[in-house]
Design a protein around this nucleic acid. Structure first.
Lengths: 136, 136
DNA sequence: TTCCTTGCAAATCGTTTGCATAATG
DNA sequence: CATTATGCAAACGATTTGCAAGGAA
C-alpha cells in the first residue's frame, strides 16, 4: 500500500506532464526509454496504473481500443479525431449543468462524468482526400 | 459490401433488442447459443461489428475493457456502476446544448458525442459492505 | 531488514482473421 | 454461379502477472 519513490515512476509522470496529446502506454515507454534505456514496458504499465489509481493522472478510453493517459486531472472533455486519432482537450462551461441534470434523473450516486466528442480535427478537415487511407 | 441474410445475424440482432442492459459479445454468444447451438464466437463478433458499422446497433466502450452493445441507437447517455459494472440508459435534455457548445468552441467538425456517468447504482448503494469484493 | 519496485518473459483476455465449407441471392 | 457468411482454430495486440533480484525507507 505504501508507495516508495522510484526514478522510473518519476520519469513517467514528468514526461506525461510535458505532453498535452494524451499518449498511450507505448508512447510513454518509447519516450522514457530515451532517458532511461533499461525501463521495461511492464514497469510503465504498472506505474501508469498506480498513478491513475491514486488520481495523479487520468486514464482515458477514447474508443480506439488503447488506453491514453492525461496528466491533467481537472474536469474537462476530449475530442477524438476519427481520421488521425488525435485527442485534444475541450473546455466546456456546461459540464456542471449536465452533471446536475444527470443526478436529478438518476436513482443512485453519480460520482464522475466523462464526455468524448468525435469528428474530424482541423488538420484532417483540410487534408485533401487520399492523403491517408480514408476510412470508407 | 452487399449484405446477405443469415439466421445467426438475425438472432443476434433480435436478442440484443430484447435486452436493455447492454450485453457484451460473450453474453450475446452465450444466449444466442441456447437457440442456435452451433454458432461460433467469431460469428457473433463479426455480426456485432457489421451491425454497428451499419448503424443498426451501438458499440459502447464503457471503460471496463470489454465492448458492450446497445440495440437502441437513439442519442442517449449511459451510467456505469463502478461496483457491479451494470450499464443503464440515462436520458438527458441538455445533450443538444452541450453539443452546440462544443461545436462553438472547437475548430474542426464534431460529429457525435458520447457521455458516460460513473458511480454507484441504486442496488450497490443499498448493499451492505462486504457483500461483494469492495474496490478499495 | 522489510517491503516496494523492477526487468524479464510468459500468461491473459478480448477481439480479429485465414481458410475451407455452407448458405444466400 | 457469384458472392457473402460460417465454424473453427490460430493469430493478434494491449495489458497483466509471477518471479527472482534490486532499491528505498
Amino acid at each position: 500500500m505504501a508507495v516508495k519513490y522510484s526514478r522510473q515512476r518519476q520519469l513517467i509522470h514528468s514526461f506525461l506532464m510535458t505532453r498535452k496529446d494524451h499518449p498511450t502506454a507505448d508512447v510513454v515507454y518509447q519516450n522514457v526509454r530515451q532517458e532511461y534505456p533499461n525501463i521495461s514496458l511492464g514497469t510503465v504499465y504498472r506505474n501508469l496504473t498506480l498513478l491513475a489509481d491514486r488520481g495523479e493522472i487520468q486514464r482515458l478510453q477514447v474508443g480506439d481500443g488503447v488506453d491514453h493517459f492525461d496528466a491533467d486531472t481537472s474536469r474537462h472533455c476530449h475530442f477524438v479525431c476519427t481520421d488521425c486519432g488525435c485527442v485534444t482537450d475541450l473546455q466546456l462551461d456546461c459540464l456542471d449543468h449536465i452533471l446536475t441534470d444527470a443526478r436529478k434523473k438518476f436513482d443512485g450516486r453519480i460520482e464522475r462524468q466523462s464526455t468524448f466528442f468525435y469528428g474530424l480535427c482541423r488538420d484532417c478537415l483540410n487534408k485533401p482526400v487520399g492523403i491517408s487511407e480514408q476510412n470508407a
